[in-house]
Design a protein around this nucleic acid. Structure first.
Length: 550
RNA sequence: UGGGGGAUCGUUCAAUGGUAGGACACAUGGUUUUGGUCCAUGGGAUCGGGGUUCGACUCCCUGUCCCCCAGCCA
């Protein structure tokens, strides 16, 4: 992490007197998204920055009703993909259940916790409101012995779900609602993905989290802004228990335009099949971004740039796009593919013959070498690269106009052949054999350069074109159902695209730039036929310029 | 209307009493065998009102606006 932020400033000071130890504590109830990546980046980079510092991955698996092993596995995979090693630093809150139980006993003995028989709705009703204080439970002043006995029976499974809870005895008139006798344990006869049926009481977040941090010797417990008014409770529990007391610091979570970070809503997109799964390339999940073709480096560069503050900001999606383009421009192999093919015939090129031309793989990185591409009489170009009557500023192919075929020859369009309905069927062109490689030294000005593919050698592929999932900037806070704002154009699949033959050997981890079109990668799911995903288009100042004039 | 936080170019992050700066976005030019990349240039901000000070984004007072909190979720 190259940038300073207010948390680093605090830790810099604290690091003089203590060993720094952070943690990333996801609940395994869904896939990780880029907002989690911000926290991962912060916590793990801090750990790498200080000598002997470490960062734990800790699953906050205290609610078996929503958690699953599948999510544990995916979270580990995503964190490792981002480049952080956690094989010997993976912890589970459920491993501390016994210790938490003992601490609860201690609190009861200190007269600071009690078993409450009230129903959930009674607890709610007696909590009071933002402006009025709550009412103490009539079970609040049970004896320590009775509380011990009742809590034992809760643990032993003598009660049904919801019949009793263990509450901390703090202050029912506190202006901070979190301090109005918060629930520490609830009864849930549920099968936990790790502890199975060993427990039927499960600790609540506020009770569990500080203990988890304390047990692991965490020095700085970094979390998001909404936990600010939980901090007094975090501190209260640790103070009463008199155990190691980490410092909780809150920062603003990531908000990105045109998408969502709410795990609940992302899950709805998955379960309602609005998208094709948690790893749908339109999802802001780590797995979605990976399948879309984003690299760990690009995501980290983005996270480094946006910084960490207490301000609840909204990052423009174009910033993320800038960082993928920047990375992909450096590493991707240049290739040629035609998405919307228009056939052209080079009339003065011999039928049945072909030649292999040399093409560089990456002008940004000569070490990536060269490859050969076949040229022949029958080619495809992009349909949008030809206009019969072109405006002055259009410097692609038009009738009697000369353009360059990238890495090949100059050609001139001589004749347009149309179907009866007026659609262009084929172009007849002439090439200049003396311009092999796409260059002449006679000073000819050829402004346009087109990508192309040899018809006989082309391979067919499907291509997924993606756009923002939501058409409005902030679907999360909009009126009505967030699903109403799903963009109809977020995914477009085109088939029968024509690609240069070298792409037959494409590997899953390779990044490609289809020249003049954008960055693409192989889709990681099984598809019918070869399928590429467009990660992001190239910047297009021509399209931008024309948008206003339409 | 109780409590906890936050307000700096369109967006985001800096400046910790001393020239308000960077990135993205936007605009304009140049280079270019990708209308990409790269390079150059430009417009553009301290929430309002008082005060302290030689000097205030920074400190004080006051007002305004925004976010979070009434799960046996995390």
């Amino acid at each position: 992490m190259s940038n300073k932020n207010f948390i680093i400033n605090i830790i810099d000071k604290d690091s003089d007197s203590q060993t720094i130890h952070t943690r990333f504590p996801p609940e395994p109830n869904g896939y990780l998204h880029i907002g989690h990546a911000k926290s991962i980046y912060l916590n793990f980079e801090i750990a790498e920055k200080y000598n002997n510092a470490t960062c734990n991955l800790r699953f906050d698996d205290t609610n078996p009703s929503t958690e699953q092993q599948e999510f544990v596995d995916q979270i580990i995979l995503d964190i490792e993909w981002l480049g952080y090693s956690i094989s010997n630093r993976t912890m589970f809150a459920s491993d501390y259940f016994e210790q938490m139980y003992k601490y609860a006993l201690q609190l009861i003995k200190q007269g600071l916790a009690y078993v409450d028989d009230q129903s959930a709705s009674d607890v709610r009703k007696t909590r009071g409101t933002l402006t009025s204080s709550g009412v103490e439970s009539r079970f609040r002043n049970r004896s320590i012995d009775e509380n011990l006995d009742l809590f034992q029976k809760m643990k032993d499974g003598l009660y049904k779900d919801g019949e009793k809870v263990l509450r901390a005895k703090i202050d029912m008139s506190s202006p901070n609602l979190n301090l109005r006798d918060p629930v520490m344990y609830r009864i849930m006869h549920a099968n936990h993905h790790r502890t199975k049926d060993a427990w039927c009481i499960y600790p609540m977040y506020d009770w569990a989290h500080g203990i988890e941090d304390s047990i692991e010797g965490i020095s700085h417990s970094l979390c998001s802004l909404e936990f600010e008014d939980h901090r007094p409770l975090y501190d209260w529990f640790l103070n009463q228990l008199k155990i190691h007391h980490p410092k909780q610091i809150e920062f603003g979570r990531l908000n990105l335009t045109h998408t969502l970070m709410s795990k609940r809503k992302l899950a709805k997109l998955v379960y309602d099949k609005v998208v094709d799964g948690w790893d749908d390339p339109r999802m802001p999940t780590i797995s979605g971004l990976r399948r879309r073709g984003y690299t760990p480096d690009s995501i980290k560069a983005f996270l480094n740039d946006i910084g960490v503050t207490k301000h609840d900001g909204f990052i423009d999606y174009s910033l993320l796009e800038f960082f993928v383009r920047e990375d992909l421009n450096k590493i991707s192999l240049r290739v040629m593919g035609v998405l919307d093919p228009l056939e052209i015939e080079i009339v003065n090129y011999p039928e049945g013959e072909s030649e292999w031309l040399t093409a560089e793989n990456n002008p940004e990185d000569k070490s990536q070498g060269e490859r050969k591409i076949p040229f022949s009489k029958h080619l495809y170009i992009e349909r949008s690269d030809f206009m019969e009557d072109a405006p002055k500023k259009y410097f692609r192919l038009s009738l009697n106009n000369e353009v360059r075929l990238k890495h090949a020859y100059y050609i001139v369009c001589k004749k347009v052949i149309k179907y009866k309905n007026g659609q262009i069927a084929k172009l007849l062109c002439e090439y200049d054999p003396s311009t092999k490689g796409g260059w002449s030294n006679d000073g000819r000005k050829v402004k346009g350069t087109l990508h192309w593919v040899s018809k006989a050698d082309a391979i067919d592929a499907n291509i997924n074109l993606y756009d923002h999932l939501f058409e409005i900037e902030n679907p999360d806070s909009s009126e009505g159902d967030f699903l109403d704002h799903i963009s109809k154009n977020s995914k477009k699949t085109i088939s029968n695209c024509k690609l240069e033959p070298s792409l037959k050997a494409a590997k899953l981890d390779q990044k490609f730039q289809f020249i003049r079109l954008g960055y693409f990668c192989l889709d990681s799911k099984n598809n019918k036929g070869l399928t590429f995903n467009r990660t992001i288009s190239l910047r297009d100042s021509w399209a931008k310029k024309n948008k206003g004039s339409k």
